[in-house]
Write a protein that binds this DNA or RNA. Structure first.
Lengths: 243, 243
DNA sequence: CGCATCATTGAACAAAATCAAGCGAGGTGG
DNA sequence: CCACCTCGCTTGATTTTGTTCAATGATGCG
């Protein structure tokens, strides 16, 4: 079975047939989430970890006064809340951007798996580390770059990540978000997001409309974003330094 | 031995004497880093993970044009680059704010430890997860709050974290950073940082001078920062859901 | 003392938010 | 089929927030 979960984790670690089977058996249930619906809610105490099998999702925090901060996008193959294994209550929510299919793995089963196969524990751990690396880039983005570079950065990252699962090429990709969502991810107002997008288009870099990004000049886009893709390729798998 | 490392990890997991000894034996070397010096450099391929035994350190990224983005502060007991276990090259640097004492644990030894004691693997994993939770808050901070709230938030967090290791109380704590560093952490210019600090002081919330923070009204500071401390207390240890 | 680093201030400028309005496509109900 | 509504996108005008530039005080240290 070529599930996106196994595909992704296989890029990080060499798995035995037994280990692959063990991972597959983790997912005891698959659930469909319609576009716009929440998959996991802030404040919950989940007993499952969730992996995205299909679709686009986003992680976000809701602030007391209703503002929303998007902290990441998740694509097929991503564990969206593996870290909830250690969280007493979710400190953020996860929503479905497009219609999603998710798999659920009971926390207890994940714990048991890790104890039985420490090697898989490392692989999972590595997966969350990769997520952190992405988040660190977002943080650098938000603290040190202006709106234009930040916006460009989001598109650079999504292009490369989606390419990694065969859903993008150098000329563009589907990205079914609204400008409101994009604004909340970049940390600017919708009005400003709209103007930045127009500017990127006028500069011949990127055209984004109706949930689809057309990239006109990827190298130039990378330059504007100061994009360094190395953070997306943590080249050292879990086997490298092990035994 | 009451090393800060064991103290911190004991809050997350119940350890056997054997496990405690195993962790202690990880640290094969301790090194002193003078204030202002770098502990780990962006671009390196470390063979060790580093744990902070004494002092204050900070994680930061250097951008192509020399700008700097501070992504976190680290205090005694924190592993500053446990995630480098999976990183091919460091995507950020770590610098000593004050004079630091660090312990070094060879990656190979950490790998071996985790395979031998999967339970400790979970504890380490949990530790990095906690780090991520903090980073997520910084990201929310940077994308959704204004300079004043962001600045207040940094002080709220540091107060609580330092209190956790007995180095702060409700009235203040040592925080030997400069305004430049603070500005790079909050993502504003030094000039603005200075004015925000003056404003917080004028409002009777907080006085920060010569590396020391005096807190005049902690509840009010929390309110300004919209501070919710729950992210610092991932109450569920690694034993809870296990066997 | 003299130098370096850090903190502070004012003034001009730029970036981005806010306010307010209008447009266009898709969906719903009459 | 059309009126109407909602949602997402777009635009202009105005205000707020934060930056940059430039200079001047402090503080501490060899």
């Amino acid at each position: 079975m070529a599930s996106p979960v196994l595909l992704k984790i296989s890029q990080a670690a060499t798995l035995t047939e037994e280990e692959r089977a063990a991972i597959s058996s983790l997912i005891v249930q698959t659930v469909a989430a319609p576009a716009g619906e929440d998959i996991v809610l802030q404040g919950e105490t989940p007993q499952f970890s969730t992996v995205l099998l299909e679709g686009l999702a986003y992680r976000y925090c809701t602030l007391p006064d209703g503002r929303r901060a998007v902290v990441s996008f998740q694509i097929a193959g991503d564990w969206v809340d593996l870290h909830s294994l250690f969280l007493d209550r979710m400190d953020h929510s996860i929503g479905a951007v497009s219609a999603c299919l998710v798999g659920k793995a009971p926390h207890a089963a994940v714990h048991a798996l890790v104890k039985r196969y420490p090697h898989l524990g490392l692989a999972f751990w590595r997966d969350t580390t990769m997520d952190s690396a992405i988040m660190r880039q977002w943080l650098v983005n938000a603290t040190a770059r202006d709106a234009r570079a930040r916006m460009a950065h989001v598109f650079c990252e999504m292009q490369l990540r989606q390419q990694g699962i065969g859903q993008a090429d150098d000329t563009g990709f589907d990205f079914p978000v609204t400008q409101v969502l994009l604004a909340d991810a970049v940390g600017i107002s919708v009005v400003h997001a709209n103007r930045i997008l127009q500017q990127l288009k006028a500069d011949g870099l990127l055209e984004f409309a109706r949930g689809h990004a057309v990239i006109h000049d990827l190298p130039a886009l990378w330059r504007v974003a100061e994009f360094d893709p190395s953070y997306l390729r943590l080249d050292r798998g879990v086997d490298a330094a092990g035994a």
